[in-house]
């Protein structure tokens, strides 16, 4: 347990050191790349709450990425650049969409749940494609980044990097508290053995639904961050392959572990980036690599850490 804490602390220190190192070596690209990793880390951490701890295989998590991003984009389109408001709207709108999707899907199990979550996300995707006012298929530019009363300037890549890092750590801490609380124990119990959970007197549905909404809201925040990161918002944020990627980050990193999803986001996006720089046909190598990693690391990357792959 001590060794694990030390390794994770070292990871955080390394992440803190990325901007100064990138500046010293004149490689600003890496600030950008790592910031993307951290944003997807938040998305993966949020999915892990319901997938890794709750056993809800949502195959539509990119929906909230899209809702969060479009919340920022649409408000900016109408001249509202206040970041507090934009991000609050992103979180609340994602929570509401998750409440709607969850209310219908969480009662179902197995393949039905997967298909319903996927279907709703496809609907949102086509909604994004069809609304011409916001760029339709091509998406829309975010001309002005979210403004935070002059407190932080997201236009500064380093500042923005630290904002995202702080939010990722906050989300990980939040999930850590949640999964160890009474609430968290109910959703984990329902994942472990639903019949037993009902037999001792829990109705899992309301707890699972609340977990689903929290995960959606958290991913909506990641969407708001992504919009500011790319300064461009397109329906592709909600593509089903994007949902698959986020899910893969969780599985690769380690389901039901606190640092796992962030490790998964790191591994997936860095390897993708390296391969893409190396050959055009990187996906041919990438696919089998993913399959192998799943077969090889049963508990995910977090399982390689001392202390094993589970937290809580």
């Amino acid at each position: 347990m001590r060794a694990r804490t030390l390794i994770l602390a070292a990871c955080v220190l390394l992440l803190l050191a990325v901007p100064p190192l990138a500046t010293v070596f004149n490689q600003p690209y890496y600030i950008d790349l790592l910031r993307r990793v951290l944003i997807f880390g938040i998305a993966a951490v949020s999915l892990n709450l319901i997938l890794g701890y709750g056993g809800l295989v949502s195959f539509g998590h990119a929906a909230y990425l899209g809702v969060g991003a479009y919340s920022v984009g649409i408000l900016a389109f109408y001249g509202i650049h206040n970041g507090w408001l934009q991000w609050a709207v992103a979180i609340v709108a994602s929570a509401l969409v998750a409440l709607l999707i969850g209310a219908i899907s969480v009662r179902t199990r197995g393949i039905y749940f997967i298909m319903i979550t996927l279907a709703f996300t496809q609907m949102l995707y086509y909604l994004g494609v069809s609304v011409e006012e916001f760029g339709g298929d091509d998406g829309m530019r975010l001309k002005v980044k979210s403004q935070f009363s002059g407190l932080v300037d997201l236009g500064d890549p380093v500042t923005y990097y630290y904002v995202v890092l702080a939010l990722l750590l906050a989300c990980m801490y939040l999930v850590h508290r949640l999964v160890n609380s009474r609430f968290g124990r109910v959703i984990r119990a329902a994942k472990s053995n639903e019949a037993r959970t009902r037999a001792i007197g829990f109705s899992p549905y309301p707890y699972q639904l609340v977990a689903f909404v929290i995960a959606g809201a958290m991913c909506g925040l990641a969407g708001a961050l992504l919009a500011n990161h790319t300064a461009y918002i397109t329906p592709a944020f909600m593509d089903w392959t994007r949902s698959g990627e986020i899910m893969f980050m969780v599985i690769l990193g380690g389901m039901g572990s606190i640092p796992g999803p962030a490790l998964g986001a790191f591994a997936l996006l860095i390897v993708e980036d390296q391969l893409a720089g190396w050959t055009q046909h990187w996906q041919v190598i990438f696919g089998p690599l993913l399959v192998l990693s799943v077969l090889f690391f049963k508990r995910g990357l977090a399982g390689l850490l001392p202390g094993g792959g589970k937290d809580g």
Binding site: R177, S181, F183, R185, V186, F202, Y207, V210
Partner: peptide
Amino acid sequence: LAVQAHAGHSFRFWRA
């Protein structure tokens, strides 16, 4: 967990 199931609702999110 069985004790918890009979100790009021479990919408308690923070305390371990």
